[in-house]
Simulated assay, not measured.
Amino acid sequence: MDALGNPLRLELTAEQRHDSVVGYEMLNSIGLTQKQVLADWDYDTNRILKLLKEQEAAPVIPSTVEYSENGTKKSTKNGI
């Protein structure tokens, strides 16, 4: 979304396609340098987080996973 809350891009997909696959492709096509990326927990993947780090974007994504210092997943907070 831009500063006024308007979507930057919208993509409809088949029901069985996971959000994180399309999300990565969409985020990779948008200039995110020095931006905040607000997303739900489906976007909390190592691949997306690595992309955001490479683009110097700040992820604002709720997580059920704890991360190590280098940004890799180390365990879930609920113990699963």
Rank of each mutant, 00 (worst) to 15 (best):
M1Y: 06
D2L: 01
D2E: 04
A3K: 08
A3D: 02
L4M: 07
G5W: 00
N6P: 00
P7A: 08
L8I: 04
R9V: 03
R9A: 12
L10H: 05
E11P: 00
E11Y: 01
L12N: 02
T13Y: 03
A14W: 00
A14H: 06
E15F: 01
E15L: 01
E15A: 13
Q16H: 09
Q16K: 04
Q16L: 00
R17D: 15
R17S: 12
H18W: 02
H18Y: 10
D19H: 03
D19E: 15
D19C: 04
S20H: 05
S20Y: 06
S20I: 01
V21Q: 11
V22D: 04
V22T: 14
G23P: 04
G23V: 03
G23W: 02
E25R: 12
E25S: 12
M26L: 13
M26T: 13
M26I: 12
M26G: 06
N28K: 15
N28T: 07
N28F: 02
N28S: 12
N28H: 15
S29F: 01
I30A: 12
I30C: 04
I30Q: 09
I30V: 08
G31H: 06
G31N: 12
G31P: 02
L32K: 06
T33Q: 10
Q34Y: 11
Q34L: 08
Q36W: 06
Q36D: 15
V37F: 08
V37H: 06
L38F: 15
A39M: 05
A39W: 03
D40T: 11
D40C: 11
D40N: 10
D40I: 07
W41P: 06
D42M: 03
D42N: 10
Y43F: 14
Y43W: 01
Y43G: 04
D44I: 05
D44P: 08
N46H: 12
R47W: 02
R47C: 02
R47H: 06
R47V: 11
R47Y: 05
I48P: 05
I48D: 10
K50P: 00
K50Y: 05
L52R: 07
L52F: 07
E54F: 01
E54C: 02
E54P: 00
Q55S: 14
Q55D: 14
A57Q: 09
A57N: 09
P59N: 12
P59G: 08
V60E: 10
P62Q: 03
S63V: 09
T64M: 10
T64S: 15
T64V: 10
V65T: 14
E66Q: 13
S68Y: 07
S68N: 13
N70G: 04
G71N: 09
G71Y: 04
T72V: 13
T72F: 12
K73Q: 09
K74V: 13
S75M: 04
S75K: 09
T76A: 13
K77T: 14
K77L: 15
N78E: 13
G79P: 02
G79M: 04
I80Y: 07
I80K: 08
